[in-house]
Design a protein around this nucleic acid. Structure first.
Lengths: 230, 230
DNA sequence: GTCAACAATTTTGTATACAAGCCGGATCAT
DNA sequence: ATGATCCGGCTTGTATACAAAATTGTTGAC
């Protein structure tokens, strides 16, 4: 089933115009080209992508179901960025999902995956010392994805990955906090240790806090931005 | 935002044909009219619903994104019932999500919600004694939904509800285990007690086990069915 | 008899055409 | 002058038409 899904995705990239458009639209919303609340005009977008309204509507509906766009019947499609409250909620769920992954992974993780985790962590550390935030970000993601996968639950891995992707643009912003990368590294070490010991409760706890703190930092960031605006 | 969503849903029920069809198709897949792996012919379904292919395709895509249908480019749409493995995975995630709801609810639940829980539980008990499995089922669902809601996290509530709904047709099957309803009732009591005490860890644990056991019972059921078939 | 290649048919994906509802401006009444 | 109402343009939702690809059946060769 996994393989089949990959094949679908692969084919769809090549064959169905609607899918390509969905991906591109997603990018345009992520990078802020379309601001929150903006109406997405079907005909304008259709001619922009050089297609008719039919595949474009399909792409919009896909985004609507993933929550990035709100489709109001007979009114149109509007960009829907999560507000501060919803964002905090999503971070909280992210923390719970990762905690669940960690709990299960503690019981199921393979030795080779533990090695991969340590390798990713080492590269992470190197990136921190090199002040290479892009590289840090990439390795950090690899670290977490290994844990999702080692939960041994494909469905959980899928759901967690989905939310991870959705939170990506927001997570990035809080990385710049002073000392955050170093602290994060220490937390990674603790997580690996817990997994190595097969200590489910500790893996769950450390992971939950590790992710939850991102949400809190983000909260602080939002508050400071809001204060600055007043 | 909640209200806005409700309005959308309400309007869509009236105005957009595609949405109604999506709901009806969902029903047809749930109740087994369309068996697993069956190809869903667009033209046949279109004329069955008395619409053109356009809204029908939109409905299919919606089901595809919710995972009930698999759309293979240039090949068609096929019913995709979760297999035993994926089902177990989904039950496991359900257990983790409900555990998360319980953990958060233990810290946030209101007194009136605690009262609602006890009320639902009482009706549950009455249903058990009356051997009224339908009523038991309804009140059981109410019980769990209250906990989702009392997590105080709208996003978590939404995601948990989504999976709950998806697992509904499978959960039902394992209710008939001898003594399961009584055991389930005892577990409910323990859950309420944990929530009442504001004991997050206990609420998390009891809820996880309460849901996980459903998956296990289901597993046993599947195994026995498989054995009977051989 | 079996396998392969090709053609015909079916089916999906996309474009265009049509219908129906919403938005804004103009007109009219108070 | 202000408010409501109605009409026209514009946008969405749906139907139909067309193009491309896949499946199936047939034919031919080995």
């Amino acid at each position: 089933m996994h393989r089949r899904h990959l094949v679908i995705h692969f084919l769809s990239m090549e064959t169905r115009r609607a899918d390509q458009i969905a991906v591109q639209l997603e990018e345009l919303i992520f990078d802020g080209t379309f601001v929150d609340g903006q109406r997405l005009d079907e005909v304008r977008l259709a001619e922009h992508f050089g297609v008719s309204r039919t595949p474009l509507r399909e792409a919009l509906q896909r985004l609507a179901l993933s929550g990035m766009v709100e489709m109001i019947p007979r009114r149109g499609a509007f960009v829907q960025q999560p507000g501060p409250v919803q964002l905090m909620e999503m971070f909280e769920v992210m923390a719970e999902l990762e905690a669940a992954c960690g709990r299960l992974a503690a019981m199921r993780i393979t030795d080779s995956a533990l090695g991969d985790l340590r390798a990713a962590n080492a590269k992470c550390l190197a990136a921190v010392e090199a002040r290479d935030s892009d590289s840090y970000y990439a390795e950090n993601e690899r670290f977490h994805r290994i844990i999702y996968q080692q939960s041994g639950n494909g469905f959980l891995e899928q759901e967690t990955s989905k939310l991870h992707k959705r939170l990506k643009p927001f997570r990035r912003k809080q990385l710049r906090f002073r000392g955050r990368m170093a602290q994060s590294m220490a937390e990674h070490e603790a997580i690996v240790a817990a997994l190595e010991d097969g200590d489910a409760a500790r893996a769950e706890d450390t992971l939950r806090k590790h992710v939850a703190v991102q949400g809190e930092k983000f909260h602080i960031l939002m508050a400071s931005l809001k204060r600055a605006a007043e």
